[in-house]
């Protein structure tokens, strides 16, 4: 497959299965409704901000594989996945296959054609009915592990669910090395991919974004990632609110150090822009961590 084709395929894989509107709707459903606001006594605190700007050309380029199609998995054979825990349970007449990524690292699993696409949420496990007449369905699972040197291993495995036999087979497994953007308070990793930039962050609770060209896509999952298209003369902005309830657990499971101080709020702003006169896009990532106000130090008693 030529690079151009791979680029297109990956763009498709990352874009919505239906349309931009569907993506937006899904994002709205998954996010807290806009009218819900924190109570008047919502915590306030001091902000700790940091920003990192990178010439996108300096990021390594990854070439993640396209998701498997239904047609493709019909003909494929595979092996039993070592990373998945697959259990079949019976409830009345129906059998259900429960699939869990058996990894201590943040993991996500998606079932279906172009399953990794779009603005969607997925956890590390899923379940599917055993149906004798159903054709095989593609399955993809991912893990994200931060190494001691700060970089991360993003593994992407593809296979299929054979619903007739209530089993899962693995077809391929790829590992990608994603560098970390240093100095942001929370781990943020980024890489160049065909057509844009892929940014990995801790699990996000809410995401909003806008772009002048192409389509932003976000996978709000333990392996949380945002695809931002890059194009000369165009720009895109994304705002993520990191899920605080899962942050500590996420950091521990990913292999990152726990934060010294628990934040009240963590927001990440991702901007990608390239003026027409600029040779390359710039990725600008800014983190803002709102920390609780420290109680004032009581004055020392004079002697």
């Amino acid at each position: 497959m030529r690079a151009g084709q791979r680029l297109a395929c990956f763009a498709v894989a990352l874009s919505t299965t239906t349309s931009g509107a569907a993506v937006a709707k899904r994002a709205l459903v998954l996010s807290r409704p806009p009218h819900v606001r924190p109570p008047p006594d919502a915590p306030t605190g001091r902000d700790v901000s940091a920003g990192v700007a990178i010439d996108v050309r300096r990021l390594p380029e990854l070439d993640p594989p396209q998701s498997l199609s239904r047609a493709a998995v019909r003909e494929l054979s595979g092996t039993a996945p070592t990373e998945l825990k697959v259990e079949t349970t019976r409830s009345g007449r129906r059998e259900t296959t429960s699939i869990t990524v058996d990894s201590p690292r943040p993991a996500s699993v998606f079932v279906g054609e172009r399953a990794s696409a779009g603005s969607m949420f997925s956890a590390a496990s899923t379940s599917i009915f055993c149906e004798p007449r159903e054709p095989r369905a593609p399955i993809r699972w991912e893990t994200f592990a931060i190494r001691a040197d700060g970089g991360a291993d993003w593994t992407v495995s593809d296979g299929f669910v054979d619903q007739a036999r209530c089993e899962v087979k693995q077809v391929s497994r790829r590992r990608f090395d994603v560098p970390r953007l240093v100095g942001l308070g929370v781990p943020v990793h980024a890489a160049r991919v065909p057509g844009g930039v892929l940014v990995f962050s801790p699990h996000a609770e809410q995401v909003t974004g806008d772009t002048t060209a192409g389509a932003l896509t976000v996978v709000r999952a333990p392996v949380n990632r945002v695809f931002i298209p890059t194009q000369q003369g165009e720009s895109a902005s994304v705002l993520l609110e990191v899920s605080l309830g899962r942050l500590d657990a996420w950091l521990r499971s990913a292999g990152a150090d726990a934060l010294r101080e628990a934040p009240l709020r963590v927001t990440l702003a991702l901007d990608v822009s390239q003026a027409v006169s600029e040779a390359a896009p710039t990725l600008f990532v800014r983190s803002k961590m709102t920390m609780a106000e420290r109680p004032p130090t009581p004055p020392r008693a004079s002697r």
């Binding site: 990192v52 700007a53 990178i54 010439d55 050309r57 300096r58 990021l59 390594p60 380029e61 190494r147 040197d149 700060g150 970089g151 090395d177 560098p179 970390r180 953007l181 240093v182 100095g183 390239q274 003026a275 006169s277 600029e278 040779a279 390359a280 710039t282």
Partner: peptide, 25 residues
Amino acid sequence: PFSVGVMPPPPVVERPPSAPSPQPA
């Protein structure tokens, strides 16, 4: 412009020591 001028600081990217440095495209 950022990419031809003095705007951006050096890239702040950590890489494993064994990995080759990415060549700017």
